[in-house]
């Protein structure tokens, strides 16, 4: 129980840090970007919208920094992330449309990548020394290619040239969004290539990590005992893998951050309507309220994913339930 409490505490602090960074950044940066922004906007949007933007930065009234901070927090709790300058809508309503796409794409990719990488790593670790080891440099290469570059190449070869996959966007222009099979299957079809790209970029990390842990575990006595017990090979491997997977899960927090970072750019390459594409547009247009809103949402989502990983770890390692967590 203690571990879960500690982790919850950590995530609460992390969320608070993210929120505070968000608040402080525009104020610490040289050149007072908020004032510049508001000056630029005057005349373009309604006074009410300017007030909402000012509020979302915590700037509503003539106040000191601390008071501004609390105004900012209050607004945040009410879901006011400000108004997008370029899109003319509230940041929260924009995010409500794009976040599901990103969560779906990255969620599916991460699950597939984790599963494939873990299986491959298990086998590579078990058969270490065999010819399969020659896969490792190739895997390393794929790990080192930037996500967006691999996605571009994939798009080019399998989308534009070979036409194996539909590309650009999350679904065809010809289908109407809705909860029906036509639409859902179309979404799956359009999602295939982006998912494959993200999996190819991220699978090597899981695979190599799992391989190293498997090799370490196979050196443990309990795996030798599994052999001594005359268990079938599959069960012996399971004994090792069951323990080797724990560090992988413990490292999910680092990995999810990296995968999300990479996957946001894959969205850009494929024109996928998620927050990645949105973030890039916002950056190019200096749409600060939108940038900040996206950053917050991404951070909170990653924290939620971390929490799920922690629960999984907690469930898989009985030692965390009785020992003092470190």
């Amino acid at each position: 129980m203690r571990l879960v409490t500690r982790r919850l505490g950590l995530y609460a602090v992390t969320a608070w840090v993210a929120v505070t960074v968000n608040f402080l950044l525009p104020r610490l940066m040289p050149g007072n970007p908020i004032q510049t922004l508001i000056g630029k906007l005057t005349g373009q949007v309604t006074p009410g919208e300017i007030r909402a933007i000012r509020l979302s930065f915590g700037l509503g009234f003539h106040q000191g920094l601390i008071a501004q901070y609390f105004t900012y927090l209050t607004q945040l709790l009410h879901g006011n992330l400000g108004v997008s300058i370029t899109l003319g809508a509230t940041v929260s309503s924009i995010l409500r449309q794009s976040v599901p796409w990103t969560v779906g794409l990255i969620g599916v990719s991460t699950i597939v990548s984790f599963a494939v990488g873990t299986f491959a790593g298990t086998w590579l670790g078990w058969t270490r020394g065999s010819r399969l080891d020659s896969l490792i440099p190739t895997a390393t290469f794929f790990q080192a290619v930037p996500y967006f570059f691999l996605a571009t190449v994939m798009l080019l070869i399998f989308g534009s040239d070979l036409h194996w996959f539909p590309v650009l966007g999350a679904y065809s222009q010809n289908v109407t969004p809705g909860w029906n099979w036509t639409f859902v299957s179309n979404v799956i079809r359009y999602g295939e290539l982006p998912v494959i790209s993200i999996v190819l970029s991220s699978v090597a990390g899981w695979m190599l990590g799992m391989r190293n842990m498997m090799i370490t575990m196979v050196g443990e006595d309990f795996v030798l005992m599994a052999v001594a017990k005359g268990l079938p090979r599959r069960r012996v491997i399971m004994h090792a893998a069951r323990n080797a997977i724990l560090p992988s899960i413990a490292n999910l927090s680092l990995a999810i951050g990296l995968v999300v970072s990479g996957a946001l750019l894959v969205e850009l390459v494929f024109n996928y309507p998620g927050v990645g594409d949105l973030l890039l547009q916002a950056v190019l247009n200096e749409d600060y309220p939108l940038i900040q809103g996206i950053f917050l949402v991404i951070t909170l989502t990653v924290l939620a994913a971390n929490l799920i990983a922690d629960v999984a770890y907690f469930a898989l390692d009985p030692r965390t339930r009785t020992e003092v967590a470190t």
Binding site: D221, F222, M225, A226, H239, R242, N243, D317, P318, R319
Partner: peptide
Amino acid sequence: LQSALNALNPV
């Protein structure tokens, strides 16, 4: 084996 802690699968 000498160390039962290592010989039993910890999970």
